[in-house]
Simulated assay, not measured.
Amino acid sequence: MNPKQFFDKVVELRQTQREYFRTRLPDALRKSKAIEAEIDKEIKRVQQIEAERAKAAADRLQGSLFPDS
């Protein structure tokens, strides 16, 4: 998911949440929770990518201290 798609999904989530709180319909709640799960999954995916990038950067920095080892 790219940043624009993420933004659009969050907008959709907020709309479904407002609909649920306005109507209290079970279907609106179900839809809201499904979108929230998508967003949570995407956040976890991006956090994993960022953690891997940070580890790779740290490994490169650490490796440069003793290049012949």
Rank of each mutant, 00 (worst) to 15 (best):
L25C: 15
S32T: 14
R14L: 08
R22M: 12
F21K: 07
P67F: 03
I39G: 02
D68N: 11
N2G: 07
E36M: 15
T16E: 11
I35H: 10
F66S: 03
P67V: 02
D68I: 00
Q5K: 09
A51S: 09
N2S: 01
I35K: 12
I35V: 14
A54L: 05
E12C: 10
E36P: 00
A28C: 12
P67Q: 05
L29F: 08
R53V: 04
D40W: 03
S64V: 01
S32V: 02
L61S: 01
I43M: 09
R14N: 12
D8N: 10
V10C: 06
E38P: 09
K4T: 07
D68Y: 03
L61P: 00
A28G: 03
Q47Y: 07
E12F: 05
K31Y: 04
G63L: 06
Q48V: 07
R24Y: 15
K31P: 02
T23Q: 09
I35Y: 12
S64K: 06
R14Y: 12
Q47K: 14
E36L: 11
K31D: 05
F6C: 02
K44L: 03
F66G: 00
V10G: 01
K55P: 02
L25V: 10
S32H: 11
D8H: 05
V11F: 11
S64Y: 00
Q48Y: 04
A34R: 13
Q17I: 05
D40Y: 11
E38R: 08
M1T: 06
R53F: 00
F21V: 02
I49E: 12
V46D: 05
L13K: 07
Y20S: 11
F66I: 03
K4Y: 15
A28S: 15
K9F: 12
Q15F: 10
E12I: 04
I49H: 03
Q62L: 00
K44C: 01
P67N: 05
R30Y: 13
N2L: 02
R53W: 04
A37L: 13
A54M: 02
R18V: 01
K55N: 05
R60G: 00
M1N: 12
